[in-house]
Design a protein around this nucleic acid. Structure first.
Length: 427
RNA sequence: CGGGGUGUGGUGUAAUGGUAGCAUAAACGCUUUGGGAGCGUUUGACCCGAGUUCGAAUCUCGGCACCCCGACCA
């Protein structure tokens, strides 16, 4: 991608309403833009990152044996009345009327929808367990949106639902999802703590949240440094000693990036989602649900990966892998670097090529702000030595690499994605 | 929903009730070309409505929008 064609206009100064780092940088680098309170536009760079996160989640969840479907945002009032949540869910539903004055709700979550889908086709124990998920937009009528993408009223969410014969089967799957969640977050460059929490209006007895310690987090979480026990203070209240090992327990502010619930039979009983066992006896299915909010995850990644100049994207979710920056008389350099650019692309790398007629300072400032993990500079200086300059965004120092060494090395990336960063091993 | 605050070019800001200015971004020209370059020219703004006043960005009232603290959430 040529940067001269990229739909991205960076800003020197953040809008005054932006307070948290992720909001400031994501707006300045033109990844996102606020449309109205708690509602955001994703511009090409931001959308690329969101899609990468989505694809990681999809791959990991699919690997668990889950199937993807897609449910509507516009939902029938009747379903919500079956569970009694039409008026009780908190935050309350966004409600609207169609032209015949019939009431509809915009889905903040999809237990009602998925349970309806389930009960219409699953009648036998032989069809269980069933794991089914979607990546879909949610609408939540929050009291207040805040922190840029950290808390919005419309957001993309991965919601997975599982149906089981019994509690034991659910417990096993619940643990598998937990491990998968850790893997998803690791690939996004985060290392969360899993803590016990309270389930709010989703319901169920047992649930766990995945927490990232951060001063801009809205939750207060107790984390025991000794035994690793963690709990949200909304579940335990204020306690001083770890309930597991009795040692002193510390409190930290955290951002909640994922939440998994053991729903039990709350929805299957209310909506009669039942199956027949071998003896022909009827049982309500045991359910679990598991959510990850994508924009919040994206913002949290920025909160944990930045410096005074801008974002430092983890390799797997960066909008591009290589930022090829052409310095000097661009036309001449462009001709000289055309082969480098094409070879990198052929190696399977995503390359953003800064071919703009701008000063070196401005190009570097934009590159640092946008935060692509590896920067390759081509200039008269480097070409005089048949070289390019390579710098990792997270490192201070750069190194000169012969152009002839560059491409064979990049070529390895295609076969083995885990060899990222592709150039780090060069001396 | 309770409390607090803010609305001026795309962005960030200034202007006792008296000519809406600055920076940045953008456009054009010339000069520059390794860390947001220089000179010149140019485009572009007072949230909406009513009121007070000779005169309102400024004061009053109403509306709308947005932000922050609290409670709720992925």
């Amino acid at each position: 991608m040529l940067q001269s064609k990229l739909f991205c206009k960076t800003k020197k100064i953040a809008p005054k309403d932006a307070e948290v780092v992720s909001h400031k940088y994501l707006v300045r680098a033109d990844f996102i833009e606020q449309s109205s309170s708690g509602v955001y536009r994703f511009l090409p760079l931001g959308f690329k990152v969101l899609k990468k996160i989505e694809n990681i989640i999809r791959a990991e969840i699919t690997a668990l044996g889950c199937q993807e479907l897609y449910l509507p945002a516009l939902q029938n009032k009747n379903l919500w009345q079956e569970t009694g949540r039409w008026n009780t869910i908190d935050p309350p539903l966004f409600k609207l009327k169609d032209r015949h004055q019939k009431e509809l709700g915009l889905g903040p979550t999809h237990e009602e929808e998925i349970t309806d889908v389930f009960r219409k086709r699953i009648k036998s124990y032989q069809d269980l367990p069933l794991y089914i998920f979607q990546i879909q937009n949610k609408f939540r009528n929050e009291m207040r949106a805040n922190g840029g993408l950290l808390r919005t009223r419309e957001f993309l969410m991965k919601d997975l639902y599982s149906f089981h014969l019994n509690e034991k089967d659910l417990a096993g799957f619940y643990e598998k999802v937990k491990r998968t969640y850790f893997e998803i977050f690791r690939r996004c460059g985060l290392n969360p703590v899993c803590v016990e929490a309270s389930s709010g209006t989703i319901g169920g007895d047992l649930c766990h949240e995945f927490m990232i310690p951060s001063p801009v987090g809205e939750d207060k979480v107790l984390i025991c440094q000794k035994c690793g026990y963690g709990a949200n203070t909304e579940k335990t209240g204020e306690i001083k000693k770890c309930p597991k090992c009795k040692s002193d327990i510390g409190k930290e502010r955290c951002i909640e990036i994922g939440h998994i619930f053991n729903l039990g039979t709350k929805y299957s009983k209310a909506m009669r989602a039942e199956y027949l066992d071998k003896e022909g006896k009827t049982h309500p299915a045991i359910m679990g649900c598991y959510g990850i909010g994508l924009p919040r995850l994206m913002a949290t990644v920025v909160e944990k990966n930045y410096d005074e100049k801008g974002i430092i994207w983890p390799k797997e979710i960066a909008p591009f892998q290589i930022h090829l920056v052409l310095l000097g008389g661009v036309e001449k350099i462009e001709r000289a670097s055309e082969k480098i650019y094409q070879d990198l692309i052929r190696s399977g790398l995503e390359v953003l090529c800064d071919d703009r007629e701008k000063s070196a300072g401005e190009k570097f400032a934009d590159a640092d702000l946008i935060g692509i993990p590896t920067r390759i500079v081509v200039s008269e200086k480097t070409l005089a030595k048949d070289s390019v300059e390579i710098k990792e965004r997270e490192e201070k120092a750069s190194k000169l690499v012969k152009i002839n060494d560059l491409v064979p090395l990049a070529g390895r990336v295609k076969e083995d994605k885990s060899s990222f960063p592709p150039f780090a091993t060069l001396g």
